[in-house]
Design a protein around this nucleic acid. Structure first.
Lengths: 227, 227
DNA sequence: CTTGGTTTGGACCGACCCGTCCAGATAAGC
DNA sequence: GCTTATCTGGACGGGTCGGTCCAAACCAAG
């Protein structure tokens, strides 16, 4: 109900509830997370939940927005510094490392939520669909930088390639969390990148970087290092 | 409780309940499907559910086995006739067509179940992990046939490639069901196959095929058109 | 027929669920 | 100070949940 509470105290309470709810939803699923669970985890009263979120659906909606912003924030930051194949591989390795830090559990919050609610809740489905679209655009932006730097052919379909990459991420995460084996994600990501390199301009070997060893490697145009 | 009831009547009842439960779970998710829902859908009594499945968990377990067998049966049959690139593309097109028949809803029963229960139920997680493994092996078998027929390099890592392909399937299905756009699956599958073709033997000389030319041989389907 | 295992119907229970309600606490504005 | 809006606590109700229990119905074997 209250997207943004007017007082500082209210905003803090709302934020605290959303964060705890997001953690619960990520751990046990949206359907298995009750309002009582959230109440216990946050030491909040039922009135607060209904004051800030209207009903249960509103709370889940807030969780979806929160997780989308979190994941997309991390991804946008990581992708912003991608300018060549090494950077892209480092980005992929980062995702594998992040999964291993969680012992191959949980997977992607957005993906898990999408699998759970896409067929039953139209509003949440659209929100998650937009999250995927934004994510895909972030990937597409990185690929465009690769293309501008001469690592991808000028006629490479960035929309298609970014979709392939995002599918590899989601599929790899699902396989990894199901088999409890992060190598499944690593392999899937490697496959996605291999597809991208199919569209490298100077194709000679499937997995070689363009430019060879003699030619000076084109460097990124505006890589803004984060502090 | 009763894996296989002793009487014909019992087996029929159990089967009827499992099928209806599977349909409900596929439509509204495992967590959102109550025993009462199953009772109403099957005109069964609560005693029957307890009699045949012990408890709710047993019913979900039966649903997992049922869906695994169903999906793997279809996939094994479709993959068994794959011998070249055209066949593989036809297999992929078949999955897209199947998804479109459901108006891009539902996705993969196994994948959706896995996303929901992998983090909360160890027994179901293992069952679904085995289902994925079996599926991967079926893909691997098709790829081995491609390799034997000279469409894949002899040093191609079939385990890795089949994992990439399965990840593309699952990721593509998740994106497609979330965005309600079957093209996402089509693109993901095309990307997966593109990765496979990365490992095609260098065309120039007929590759030394281990089995010789026992089977009628290659037309080289290189499906790389746009449109 | 009787017997005994199998299958089915449905009442019942305690726990939990979501949502409503009201009163008290807190703080902002005047 | 007072007023008003915001925030919080918690009891309450109606409904649903999974699970238990008992007895009736069914059915094949003797």
């Amino acid at each position: 109900m209250l997207e943004v509470p007017p007082t500082e105290r209210g905003r803090a309470s709302r934020e605290r509830i959303v964060q705890a709810a997001a953690r619960l939803v990520a751990r046990q699923g949206a359907a298995a997370t009750s309002l009582d669970d959230v109440m216990k985890a946050t030491h909040a009263s039922k009135s607060q939940l209904y004051h800030y979120f209207g009903d249960r659906h509103g709370l889940v909606e807030a969780v979806v927005e929160y997780e989308s912003a979190a994941v997309l924030g991390v991804q946008a930051r990581a992708l912003a510094s991608v300018g060549d194949w090494d950077d892209l591989n480092a980005w992929a390795d980062g995702m594998v490392a992040m999964l291993e830090r969680r012992r191959s559990r949980g997977g992607c919050p957005i993906g898990t939520l999408a699998a759970a609610v896409a067929d039953t809740d139209e509003a949440l489905r659209q929100a998650l669909s937009e999250a995927f679209a934004t994510w895909r655009e972030a990937i597409s932006g990185a690929l465009r930088r690769l293309r501008d730097n001469g690592f991808l052919a000028s006629d490479a379909d960035l929309n298609e390639l970014s979709t392939i990459m995002l599918a590899a991420i989601q599929g790899g995460l699902l396989l990894a969390k199901t088999t409890r084996d992060s190598a499944q994600l690593r392999t899937a990501l490697r496959g996605g990148i291999a597809t991208l390199q199919t569209h490298a301009p100077t194709v000679r070997e499937p997995v070689t970087v363009p430019g060879g060893s003699s030619r000076s490697k084109p460097r990124r145009g505006q890589p803004r290092g984060e502090g």
